[in-house]
Simulated assay, not measured.
Amino acid sequence: MKCPICGKPATEHYRPFCSRRCADVDLAHWLRGDYRIPAEPAEDKQGEE
């Protein structure tokens, strides 16, 4: 298995990453909101009730 950040072989301790650095880079992507699914805004349901 290759590290999804840098492509080096993954290590058992940080799987699926190769190092703590790559794991931290991935965490930073999540915290910044880089990994998200684009979607349309939800409609306001107050008028339907």
Rank of each mutant, 00 (worst) to 15 (best):
residue 5 I to M: 11
residue 23 A to P: 00
residue 48 E to P: 08
residue 17 F to L: 02
residue 27 L to I: 02
residue 47 G to W: 10
residue 30 W to S: 08
residue 2 K to Q: 13
residue 25 V to I: 14
residue 17 F to V: 06
residue 16 P to M: 07
residue 17 F to C: 08
residue 34 D to F: 09
residue 48 E to D: 12
residue 5 I to C: 03
residue 13 H to V: 11
residue 9 P to T: 06
residue 11 T to G: 09
residue 22 C to V: 03
residue 31 L to P: 04
residue 27 L to A: 15
residue 20 R to N: 14
residue 9 P to N: 11
residue 46 Q to V: 11
residue 12 E to L: 09
residue 41 P to L: 12
residue 26 D to V: 00
residue 48 E to I: 11
residue 42 A to N: 04
residue 6 C to K: 06
residue 5 I to K: 08
residue 45 K to R: 14
residue 40 E to D: 15
residue 13 H to M: 12
residue 45 K to I: 12
residue 48 E to C: 00
residue 18 C to T: 05
residue 31 L to I: 06
residue 42 A to W: 00
residue 44 D to M: 03
residue 14 Y to M: 00
residue 26 D to Y: 14
residue 12 E to S: 13
residue 47 G to Q: 12
residue 32 R to E: 11
residue 29 H to A: 13
residue 34 D to Q: 12
residue 4 P to K: 06
residue 12 E to A: 15
residue 34 D to V: 11
residue 41 P to D: 09
residue 4 P to M: 07
residue 12 E to G: 11
residue 37 I to D: 01
residue 48 E to G: 03
residue 48 E to N: 01
residue 19 S to R: 03
residue 40 E to G: 01
residue 43 E to I: 10
residue 10 A to F: 03
residue 1 M to H: 07
residue 32 R to D: 08
residue 29 H to K: 15
residue 41 P to E: 14
residue 36 R to H: 09
residue 18 C to D: 08
residue 34 D to S: 13
residue 44 D to H: 10
residue 45 K to Q: 15
residue 10 A to N: 04
residue 22 C to M: 03
residue 49 E to V: 12
residue 4 P to D: 08
residue 49 E to Q: 13
residue 27 L to C: 01
residue 43 E to G: 07
residue 38 P to T: 05
residue 39 A to I: 06
residue 13 H to K: 15
residue 14 Y to N: 08
residue 22 C to E: 05
residue 31 L to N: 11
residue 20 R to P: 07
residue 38 P to A: 05
residue 42 A to T: 06
residue 18 C to F: 01
residue 20 R to G: 15
residue 1 M to W: 03
residue 7 G to L: 10
residue 40 E to H: 05
residue 13 H to S: 11
residue 17 F to Y: 15
residue 14 Y to D: 09
residue 24 D to M: 08
residue 44 D to E: 13
residue 33 G to Q: 04
residue 9 P to C: 02
residue 24 D to P: 02
residue 20 R to I: 05
residue 38 P to N: 03
residue 12 E to T: 15
residue 36 R to P: 01
residue 44 D to Q: 10
residue 8 K to L: 10
residue 42 A to L: 13
residue 21 R to H: 12
residue 13 H to Y: 11
residue 27 L to D: 09
residue 37 I to Y: 02
residue 38 P to I: 02
residue 29 H to D: 12
residue 4 P to G: 13
residue 25 V to W: 00
residue 28 A to V: 04
residue 1 M to K: 11
residue 5 I to L: 06
residue 13 H to E: 15
residue 28 A to T: 10
residue 29 H to Q: 12
residue 2 K to L: 13
residue 28 A to H: 10
residue 12 E to H: 08
residue 46 Q to A: 14
residue 36 R to A: 11
residue 11 T to E: 07
residue 34 D to N: 13
residue 37 I to P: 02
residue 16 P to R: 05
residue 37 I to M: 05
residue 46 Q to S: 13
residue 3 C to Y: 03
residue 7 G to D: 08
residue 35 Y to I: 14
residue 20 R to V: 03
residue 12 E to P: 06
residue 36 R to Q: 04
residue 19 S to A: 06
